[in-house]
Amino acid sequence: MSAIAWYLERAGIATTGISLVRENTESFGPPRFLWVSFPLGRPLGTPGDAGFQHRVIASALSLLERRDGPVLEDFPEDAAGPAPDAGELVCPVSFAPQARDDAGGWAERLAGEARSLAPWYDAARETRAGRTSVGILVDSPVDLAREAGAALDSGNGLPRARCKHVLEDLKAYYLEAMLAQPGADAETLGRWLWLETVLGDAMLELRKTMLVGAEGQTALFAESLVPRWVLDLRAGDESSEDRSN
């Protein structure tokens, strides 16, 4: 972001904008940025709150009237936190009891899970006037789930770009299905996706499979499939198990 500001400003286009990590922005010293204390992924703060978003934008636009810089100002408000009942996410789908067991291949289990979310994905999409962020690829989510599962079943994996796009579309599909529940906050959704679904298991397995003997870009890619917090949590779980054994 800072680099884009630097090159635009050099070319005569004035810039202002949002900083999410103050230390990073400070290190680069770009012309004008407003630091906000919001979670990564939410530079305007609160989804669906036009008034709040306008206050953020107005603060950033006011920096354009400064006579010199660099300007890195703090936005005084925090974004709204989760609703009081936000930790009580209930998955609307009753996954078959064996869904996360090893019975059946990955392709079968993943496709079944994706299929069971379809009514909730459709319902959630309807509440957003048809808008969806699923659509990097043209294939249906059930077909993508089957493709990812087949890659694990066969041990052949997927080409890196294809793998990334298949998983991004599937994650968007799963999360949008859960957005049918308005109170679901980001942390709860993340824990559900990564710790309670076959897809979460499959992504961890893909990472593990791809890391075997991998070097260079393939190893970096495999590492990037799973968020650091999930790996940290799993590492903690494994060391607890080790201690109890």
Binding site: G41, R42, P43, L44, T46, P47, L175, L179, G190
Partner: peptide
């Protein structure tokens, strides 16, 4: 990157692209 929240964007594109 998988290390940021996507659910805000999925609820309201304006949270990243206003």
């Amino acid at each position: 990157s998988v290390n940021f929240d996507r659910s805000g964007f999925q609820r309201d594109v304006n949270v990243v692209f206003p």
